[in-house]
Amino acid sequence: MEQKLIEIRDNAREELCGIKEKEGLASFKVKYLGKQGLLTSVLRGMRDISPEDRPKIGMLVNEIRDEIESKINLKEKEFDNVELLKELENTAIDITEPGKAHEKGGLHPLSQVYDLLIDSCVNMGFKVVDGPEVELDYYNFEALNIPKNHPSRDMQDTFFVSENILLRSQTSSVQARSMQTMKPPFKIISPGRVYRNDSDATHSPVFHQMEGLVIDENISMADLKSMLTILMRKTFGEATQIRFRPSFFPFTEPSVEVDVTCPNCKGEGCRICKGTGFMELLGAGIVNPKVLEINGIDSKKYRGFAFGFGVDRVAMVKNEIGDIRSMFRNDIRFLKQMK
């Protein structure tokens, strides 16, 4: 009996090694472990065995059955794996075909720069203020210490609608309006569209500005310097430096032009900055006390600084755009490059 069982086991082991596919495995299972299987039929002969040998034989039968079963399972998994690999191989695709997604659009370079500038200022405590583009002469000029027929009006060519109504030539008009309605201390920025009677490769009759105004009790040129340094670093990178040069604006005193490290050469000197390493970008200064008084703010108590610059220029420099007119042509081949 024992001999026979060992024989069955050895045969099963040998046979199992020869099975190469899943079907063979199923019939093998039936052959050995099925109701009519070899091992089962051996068990049927148990009654002929002496009671003292039965446990031993029984154990051996179980041992052999367990061995065959586990080997079948193992083999089955092996076959499944091979099958899966084959399937994975068969279902492979050409990954170099183009992706099918619904494509995103993009913001205009001007908006991208505006968002950056506005967010930087908002983080420093500035509120965004909006105002009309068709404006009274009063807010665009007179309230900013530029009386009618004053020589400083020559600094800008203005589009007029009537004697007293014009297309704002600077968003400072919003500052005048704000000074008359807001209570100091405050910090505001006025991003927006402005108009000047001027048109060539570097000047557009319609362009975009952002101006800022801070009114408080102890404002100084040093505050202006640190604020603009932060703003320009957020815009052009942490290594950016700024420097002041004397200038004149009717609404500020002292007035400065602000040069910024040339973003192209990082200050090394290049064609764009004419070798100076700096680029003239902003106008700024301490708010002329006359402007505070005109707009109802006590110049004995309060002082302020103001700054302003062309946003188109910043967008052009940041994106290496040469001609301002290409900004307004809106060719999607142009816009797609900055999405």
Partner: peptide, 29 residues
């Protein structure tokens, strides 16, 4: 005074931002 004294004095001036001013709340319109 400052234009003759020289604006380059600000090149080395590194004051803290608004160190003598009140805090204001910023925000979008």
């Amino acid at each position: 005074i400052i234009r003759i004294y020289g604006y380059d004095v600000y090149d080395k001036c590194d004051n803290a931002l608004f160190d003598k001013s009140k805090v204001t709340e910023g925000g979008l319109d």
